[in-house]
Design a binder for these strands. Structure first.
Lengths: 109, 109
DNA sequence: TAATTTAATCGTAATATTGCAATATATAAA
DNA sequence: TTTATATATTGCAATATTACGATTAAATTA
């Protein structure tokens, strides 16, 4: 047990869950906010700004990269992380559509 | 270790993460979709519709209730689960605002 | 080349999540 | 009251996540 039964859900359901999972930790929310609030890409600055160890930040960055929300470009010895605009827009559409359901059951409960 | 350091994040960051966490499992996505796609509230039907054990569905329902997205009304021996419209709208606003950042760094990466 | 800097990876410990069988609880029906 | 039905809770096993120190890898600088 302890293993999510992805097979029994639709691709869409798994996709929505995967995107939401990326936002489901405050450190990753903080990382994303830092990146899109500062005018330039943030790299190792994240470790200083957020109070977590370098290895932990790196781990969270990898997760954000894996779902496609971030992309990283090597710049000398450091790495520049940016929002992947296309994938971000796509994720936004998918989540928005999910949140934007039409309330049909007004007389319920 | 293994314990999220909530203290070092803002209330907003923790809130966004908590809402996203509710959507971060396909079973909970499926439950919510079932509820707002059917005209009436779904109760134990969820166990039949989704291929998970009754105890598992009940657990997911509790999590959705705990973040406030669902409310449950007892109707005889069964329970009618519905979207909490106010909290849902609030969650939608918070997530939408987060996703709707203005891209300032167009010349990046 | 050697030392420095920056980020990724590895290994590990602690905690959380997922899933289910079994059991408990609560209401309705017989 | 007894039985049936529906949901919640408990306890447990398996897996996942979070966090970090230590190490590795890669590029820059001295």
């Amino acid at each position: 047990m302890g293993l999510t039964k992805s097979e029994i859900f639709t691709k869409e359901q798994n996709h929505i869950a995967a995107i939401a999972k990326a936002f489901a930790h405050p450190a990753r929310v903080a990382i994303l906010q830092q990146i899109f609030n500062s005018r330039t890409c943030i790299c190792g600055d994240l470790v200083d700004e957020i109070g977590l160890a370098q290895a932990t930040i790196s781990q969270h960055l990898r997760e954000l990269k894996n779902v496609g929300l971030l992309k990283g470009n090597i710049e000398g010895t450091s790495v520049c992380y940016c929002i992947d605009e296309d994938n971000w827009a796509n994720a936004k559409d998918i989540i928005s559509q999910f949140l934007d359901y039409e309330s049909k059951n007004t007389t319920c409960c």
